[in-house]
Amino acid sequence: MPEFLQFAFSGLTVGAIYALVALGFTLIYNASGVINFAQGEFVMLGGMVTVFAHAAGLPLPLAALTALVTAVVIGLALYRFAIEPARGASAVSLIIITIGASILLRGATSIVFDKNFHSLPPYAGSAPWIVGGAALLPQSLIVLGGAAAIVVALWYFLTRTLTGKALLATAANRLAARLVGINTNAVVGLSFAVSAAIGALGGILMTPITFTSYDSGTLLALKGFAAAMLGGMGNPLGAVVGGLVVGLLEAFSAGYISSSYKDAVAFLVILGVLFLMPQGLFGRGGVERV
């Protein structure tokens, strides 16, 4: 039982990060139909920029803010200089552009910073609490709490503010959105900025437990993508649930089967979803009332 709890704690913690990555995918996908494979790079940047800004002498909160702003600026630049000029290109071309952008970001990070692994001191002590025989790190709670706060903030933004509703409206019907006076290009740019911010916050939250390096974004993007697929592409609630499920599956298979297969779980999830339920857990089917 303590073992089970232990795996559940670590599964939920990484799952929360996957959920944030999946939310980033979801937002951009909804607003523009693009699957942004550079999403993992925002998480990596959140961690790496915080580490180096902190090492350069900035206090931790300021270092984190620097990382957040950096990621948002890069997210906006990605939209403005790579996605927007290719407007009208096929979905596959746009996806390849985002893959190219992620390679570029990885390379630039390895040159600007370095290729080593880095970590940050835990934000609130490193002495674990013992819950039901399992160790729970304070940082895990910070990750879960932080992710929950981000989800609530995003929910509030999307359902309670006019700008958020404009984003949903653009996702629901781009033509009608333009006809009511929504600048849909700006909305798509906004979705890149918000996704970058969410990713960077995930990176800032997780770096004290997981280490980060210039290439840690790739696997995160894949796992977040698996989570988004599992939840149903385009569904924010599905992204969160999918993230937690992928995290838990990964932790349990690492614990009960072998940790060498840990990273395969996400791929199995992708395959399983494609074979068994292409619309995901909460996804809409292809049926629409006309």
Partner: peptide, 24 residues
């Protein structure tokens, strides 16, 4: 302002939200 062919309402959004967006 245009009322488009085939109505093109924001299907997943509420009636009230559709109208609020009209006043964007």
């Amino acid at each position: 302002a245009q009322v488009p062919e085939a109505r093109q309402v924001f299907a997943p959004l509420s009636v009230n939200d559709n109208l609020l967006l009209g006043g964007f």
